[in-house]
Design a protein around this nucleic acid. Sequence first.
DNA 1: ATCCCGAGGG
DNA 2: CCCTCTGGAT
Length: 214
Amino acid sequence: MVKQLDYHALQRIFSRFREAEAEPKGELHHSNAFTLVVAVALSAQSTDIGVNKATKRLFELADTPEKMLALGEEAVIEHIKTIGLYRNKAKNVIKLSRILVESYGGQVPSSRAALQSLPGVGRKTANVVLNMWFGQPSQAVDTHILRLGNRSGIAVGRDETAVERAIEDNVPAEYQLHAHHWLILHGRYICTARKPKCAICPIRDDCLYEEKTE
DNA sequence: ATCCCGAGGG
DNA sequence: CCCTCTGGAT
């Protein structure tokens, strides 16, 4: 089990992230709060590239909850059939759209509780929306961040919630807002699940991961 | 703990 | 072939 890195190490790591990319963005295509919620919900256990491919036409036809309802579940299924878990996701997109229309005036709510009450929206998705759309320094922990956090010592914890706390407790305040995207992009492209690219890793000096142990 | 579940990479 | 991908609901 890797130890949690201290404040000074995290200061060095995040200053390098910021140096390379001052305003890191997510890679899920969306045009408004509604399409962001749907895109993030669809991204569960799927790649951004695959989600973007599927939502391109879907969002041309329906970029509001009203239009999504009019489109209907069967049509949604046809558009997202190339994404894993598509049946559950299509059902959730329709149910979620209905709730937004009936209870929120067609708007996406800004509170965590309201977001998480939507079908298919759990803690991680709510955190992404709070961060990306409402500008809150919330930490959405996905598969990449869970892996990167525990390998490197940036944020150590047994599950997503523990890693989320570790980020909040240990990452310097000035980096909290963008931490999610810096971490996920680093996990996606450098600290990959299988053969992590340690040779070109910009934070190698502070990382606790030993390539030999995997 | 288990189910959902296709595409892409190695 | 097996593993992984911005998880959530039961």
